[in-house]
C-alpha cells in the first residue's frame, strides 16, 4: 500500500530505468532459458528427464555440491581466524590485512586463475619448493579448492569481519570474571555473537561456488566437472541448447531452494545489511 503510494508520487519513476534494464538483460533471458529448456528440441520435460535419467549428470550435480561444500568449509576455516585477527589488529595492520583480502578481489579472475596454473603445476613454484616427486596440485580437487577458496575468501572475511567488529570484547572479559575459561567464553559468548556473520559468509560462499565455471575449468581435472562447466560444454560443445537451459534452471532452482531454507534459519535481510 505505501509502496504503491510512493510509486504514485513521481519519485517512483526513478526506479524505471533500472527496472527496464533488468527486464531486458535479466528477466527476459531467464524466461527464454526456462522456455527453451521446455521446448528445445521438442516441447515437454524431455531435457529434465534426460538429466535425471543419467547418472553421469547427477554425478556432476553431486560433485558440484561436494566441491562447493568443501570450498565453503575451507574458506570459513581460513576466513574466521583472519576476520578475527582483523578485529584485534592495530589500525595499520588491519589496513594491511584488509588490502590483502581486497587486492586479489579487484584482480581479474582469469589472470588469478592462470597464475595458479603457473604456481601449482608439476614444474611450478610450489612444487619447486617441495622436495621429491612433484605433488599433483593441478587438474584435481586440490587445484579447484585452492583456486576457489582464494576467490571466495573476501566473501567470507568481509561479512564475518563486519559482525565481529560489532562484538563488545568487554563481554569476554566479563565472562572470564564470572569464572569462564577463555575457551568456554569463546564458545558461549563470542561464537554465538559471531554466528550471523558466519552464516552470511557460509551462504554467500556456498551459493556463489555452485555456479563457478572459470576456476574449475582451468584448475580441475576431468573427474571434477562442475555444473557450470557442463552447461558450457552442452552449449558450445555439443550445441544442446535446450539441455543446457534445463541444467541452468536446475542450478537456479536448487540455489533458490537453499536460500529458502536458509531464510528460515537466519534473517537474510540482516545479512545483506538492509534489516533493521
Amino acid at each position: 500500500m505505501t509502496a504503491l503510494r510512493r510509486l504514485g508520487d513521481g519519485w517512483g519513476m526513478l526506479v524505471l530505468p533500472l527496472a527496464a534494464f533488468l527486464l531486458v538483460v535479466f528477466v527476459y533471458p531467464l524466461a527464454s532459458v526456462l522456455a527453451r529448456s521446455l521446448t528445445d528440441p521438442e516441447p515437454g520435460l524431455g531435457n529434465y528427464a534426460a538429466f535425471f535419467d543419467s547418472p553421469v549428470y547427477l554425478d556432476v550435480l553431486g560433485n558440484t555440491f561436494v566441491t562447493a561444500g568443501l570450498v565453503t568449509l575451507v574458506t570459513l576455516l581460513l576466513g574466521f581466524p583472519y576476520a578475527y585477527l582483523m578485529t584485534v589488529a592495530r589500525p595499520f595492520w588491519r589496513g594491511v590485512l584488509m588490502a590483502a583480502v581486497l587486492v586479489p578481489f579487484w584482480t581479474s579472475l582469469l589472470v588469478r586463475t592462470f597464475a595458479w596454473v603457473l604456481l601449482l603445476r608439476d614444474t611450478g613454484v610450489v612444487n619447486a619448493l617441495i622436495p621429491g616427486e612433484p605433488v599433483p596440485l593441478l587438474r584435481n580437487l586440490a587445484g579447484i579448492t585452492i583456486g576457489m577458496v582464494q576467490v571466495m575468501l573476501p566473501f567470507a572475511v568481509l561479512p564475518m569481519y563486519a559482525t565481529m567488529r560489532g562484538i563488545d570484547r568487554r563481554l569476554l572479559r566479563a565472562a572470564e570474571g564470572l569464572g569462564a575459561t577463555p575457551v568456554f567464553a569463546f564458545w558461549r559468548v563470542y561464537a554465538p555473537l559471531a554466528l550471523p556473520g558466519v552464516a552470511a559468509a557460509l551462504l554467500l560462499v556456498f551459493v556463489s561456488t555452485l555456479g563457478f565455471y572459470v576456476t574449475p575449468a582451468l584448475l580441475g581435472g576431468p573427474k571434477d566437472v562442475m555444473i557450470g562447466e557442463l552447461i558450457v560444454q552442452q552449449l558450445s560443445g555439443v550445441l544442446r541448447w535446450g539441455f543446457a537451459s534445463a541444467l541452468a534452471v536446475i542450478l537456479l532452482l536448487v540455489t533458490g531452494a537453499l536460500l529458502l531454507v536458509a531464510s528460515r534459519l537466519v534473517d537474510l535481510r540482516k545479512m545483506i545489511g538492509s534489516g533493521s
Binding site: 563481554l171 570474571g177 568456554f184 567464553a185 554465538p192
Partner: peptide, 20 residues
C-alpha cells in the same frame, strides 16, 4: 592466577550482559 580461577564476582559500569 587467571581471572576465571579467582572466584570473585565482578560488575562493570557498562553492565556487560550477554546480548544473545
Amino acid at each position: 592466577v587467571p581471572p576465571h580461577r579467582r572466584e570473585l564476582g565482578m560488575v562493570f559500569q557498562h553492565y556487560a550482559l550477554f546480548p544473545h
